[in-house]
Amino acid sequence: MQATDERRTLVHALNQPVNVIRLTIANMGTRLLPGLDGDDRSYLVDRLAVIEAQIEHYVAITEAFERGAAAAQPVADRES
């Protein structure tokens, strides 16, 4: 049981900076997208989506670790 609590604590600590990154990219999109048109808007939307997909992949890995699973199912990689 102690190993599970230690994993949970570690996963929580690992996810904290990722949560800040996730909030920051959401705020960037909200602030910057209204002022962009065309290619610039498409580019930013795509880049933010890539970052979000990588965050989701990271979270899946940490959650699998917390459960004691050997590995998480990979999220399909997008071209960066």
Results as ranks from 00 to 15, higher is better:
69 A>R: 02
8 R>E: 06
64 A>D: 06
64 A>S: 02
27 N>G: 12
29 G>E: 08
59 V>A: 08
76 A>C: 04
11 V>T: 14
76 A>Y: 03
71 A>L: 11
69 A>N: 11
65 F>R: 06
16 Q>D: 01
68 G>I: 09
37 D>K: 10
70 A>D: 13
68 G>W: 08
58 Y>N: 14
33 L>R: 06
55 I>S: 05
53 A>F: 11
67 R>Y: 02
51 I>Q: 03
64 A>N: 07
9 T>M: 13
33 L>I: 09
13 A>S: 13
47 R>P: 00
66 E>C: 12
8 R>A: 12
70 A>Y: 11
27 N>A: 14
48 L>R: 10
64 A>Q: 00
46 D>Q: 05
53 A>L: 09
74 P>F: 00
31 R>C: 12
66 E>Q: 14
13 A>V: 04
34 P>N: 02
70 A>W: 14
58 Y>S: 12
76 A>H: 01
43 Y>T: 14
57 H>P: 00
69 A>K: 03
16 Q>V: 10
28 M>L: 15
75 V>C: 05
64 A>K: 00
55 I>L: 07
38 G>N: 05
18 V>C: 06
16 Q>K: 12
30 T>H: 15
55 I>D: 06
28 M>Y: 06
13 A>T: 08
17 P>D: 06
17 P>Y: 01
46 D>C: 00
55 I>Y: 08
24 T>D: 07
39 D>Y: 02
45 V>F: 02
29 G>N: 01
46 D>S: 12
25 I>F: 04
69 A>F: 04
67 R>G: 04
27 N>Q: 12
